[in-house]
Design a protein around this nucleic acid. Structure first.
Length: 514
RNA sequence: GGGCGCGUAGCUCAAUGGCAGAGCAGCGGCCUUUUAAGCCGUUUGUUGAGAGUUCGAGCCUCUCCGCGCUCACCA
């Protein structure tokens, strides 16, 4: 049962009074004829015809502010298009209706109002209300109860909902009072539709592949597990789309992509959520260089569509997504920032010694690839503010990428970076079933038996490959991360409507935690 | 999981170990062009939960819950 505070109890009392007067606090239908934005456009077009010729219109929205002045009352309502002022005067609506408005209507209520548009003394386009009615009574007060529109159109909010936790837990209230949050999620939708349009225009076919998978793979992460009761089958929530999308290349679908949810049972941080939106595409007869070209086209196209420019400001820095992006060979990039030439150290032990000789502290007893990855993450990645491709990765941390001809330790792989973090990951895909089987086995050898990150050997994937897979380039990108960049948000929680949060059930009610 | 920090009214925030407060919202008045309307009056609390130290705890100690930052993990 809900427990009501004193403000809510007063509104519940009002609901009872409404009902006793035969007024439905939650009527079934509304009769809106115009949105707030349409009304303002309409008035600017018809104002010169004089007040008498103004049409009678009906607006609907949520009450955001009330200023009662005795025999007249001003209010603002807000709908999906914006905000508009209402003017209620005793001359038109009568003493009884005005008293009803002042007594029974609250900030947060939905209402509709009928009347003609006018302009007030201060010049604001306003609905001169002849009739109004309640559409939905609000019981809990909205967290932001005061705000004001400036002359330049910006809105200053007082006592706004600001706690990040509360905003994420009660996103509905956050959205209701913070228009810029609504704008962030409109941009997010636009990002996804732009990516989709770009790929559709390049003859990619959008597909959907299983989220519930008997074997997970395609990335190195711990999965969520679940169970199918009737089949008595252990299943995993996918950690990537890769292996299913590449099966489709075997089936002669030459260009495929999927935008959907991945699930990784890992730590949560400002850039990691347990479920996140991923874009992957696979492109037959292309290699990683062509994928690089397409990537910078796709992301710059999306940036332009969403923000109107190739240049965006992120956390105070201007990022320029105009193609071409800077391209740095990994060996050279590491050499530049650390002075270590990874090609001079083909064994993990040599490389580790070389790193320690520089006074750094790499992970001990690991593979050459993981040492290189440490160097990239620690020294190179933070320097990559402008969009940059790092290319040619070590083979042993890239089990699904194709070797670079003539270089057995290196694969044709690149990652795209911006603002100092990884945005996307792509390679010339391994299409040799015998090599792939060998890689899976090698991967298995790098991990202990209990290691959940183990890439389970996917026999069906190898069977598909044996039918023949065309040479191809593949690509994966975190859509949430791109959204952070294009909406200037530091935390992934700001670009997810309902980010993962711990349960609040025990909060403040029980000290035992049970 | 480790480290650091935070949690006070519906919202935003104050309060040397010594009577828990302000603004907004709410409630009662006045007010026929306001827009953070204004003026007068007024209500609102298990200070996240529990235990301890103390004559006395919002403040100090411990445990727990939640959140933030950060490190690790996430190639």
């Amino acid at each position: 049962m809900a427990e009501y505070n004193s403000l809510e109890l007063i509104r519940l009392q009002k609901i009872e009074e409404l009902k006793s007067e035969g007024i439905e606090p939650y009527p079934t239908r509304a009769n809106r004829t115009h949105t707030a934005a349409q009304a303002i456009t309409l008035f600017t077009e018809t104002e010169q015809d004089g007040p008498e010729s103004q049409p009678v219109i009906t607006l609907a929205g949520r009450i955001r502010g009330i200023r009662s002045m005795g025999k007249l009352t001003f209010a603002h309502i807000e709908d999906g298009s914006g905000r508009i002022q209402l003017f209620l005067r005793i001359n038109e609506i009568g003493a009884e209706a005005l008293a009803f408005f002042d007594k029974m209507m609250d900030i947060g209520d939905f209402m509709e109002a009928e009347g003609k548009l006018m302009r007030t003394k201060t010049g604001e386009i306003t609905l001169h209300v002849a009739r109004f009615s309640l559409l939905a009574k609000s019981i809990s007060p909205l967290p932001a109860d005061k705000d004001v529109t400036q002359e330049d159109g910006s809105v200053i909010r007082y006592a706004a909902l600001e706690g990040i936790e509360l905003r994420a837990r009660q996103r509905y209230a956050d959205l209701a009072v913070n228009p810029e949050v609504r704008e962030t999620f409109r941009k997010r939708a636009k990002i996804i539709s732009s990516l989709r349009r770009f790929l559709d225009n390049h003859d990619f076919l959008e597909v959907e592949t299983p989220i519930l998978q008997p074997i997970y793979g395609g990335a190195n992460a711990r999965p969520f597990t679940t169970f199918h009761n009737q089949l008595k089958q252990q299943l995993y929530l996918r950690i990537s789309f890769e292996l299913y999308l590449k099966r489709l290349l075997v089936g002669n679908l030459e260009r495929v992509y999927e935008i959907g949810r991945d699930f990784r049972n890992e730590g949560v941080s400002f850039k990691h959520n347990p479920e996140f939106t991923q874009l992957e595409f696979y492109w037959a007869y292309a290699d990683y260089l062509q994928v690089m070209d397409l990537t910078e086209q796709m992301i710059s196209y999306t940036a332009k569509e969403v923000t109107g420019s190739y240049k965006v400001t992120y956390q105070g820095k201007e990022l320029d997504f105009s193609p071409p992006w800077k391209r740095i060979e990994m060996r050279q990039g590491i050499l530049d920032v650390t002075g270590i030439d990874i090609y001079a150290h083909s064994q993990a032990t040599d490389l580790e010694a070389a790193i320690r000789a520089k006074g750094y502290h790499p992970p001990a007893n690991t593979t050459r690839g993981k040492l290189i990855d440490y160097l990239v993450g620690e020294f190179l990645e933070p320097t990559l503010i402008q969009p940059t491709f790092i290319y040619d990765y070590p083979r042993d941390i890239s089990p699904l990428a194709k070797s670079k001809p003539g270089d057995p330790l290196t694969v044709e792989r690149f990652e795209g970076y911006a603002a100092g973090f990884e945005l996307c990951n792509a390679f010339t895909e391994l299409n040799d079933p015998l090599d792939q089987e060998q890689r899976f086995i090698e991967m298995g050898r790098d991990y202990t038996a209990e290691d959940e990150e183990l890439n389970l050997l996917d026999e069906d994937y190898l069977r598909a490959m044996r039918y023949g897979m065309p040479p191809n380039g593949g690509f994966g990108m975190g859509v949430d991360r791109l959204t952070m960049l294009l909406t200037n948000k530091h935390s992934i929680r700001e670009v997810l409507l309902f980010p993962h949060l711990r349960s609040e059930e025990q909060s403040g009610s029980d000290s035992t935690g049970n």
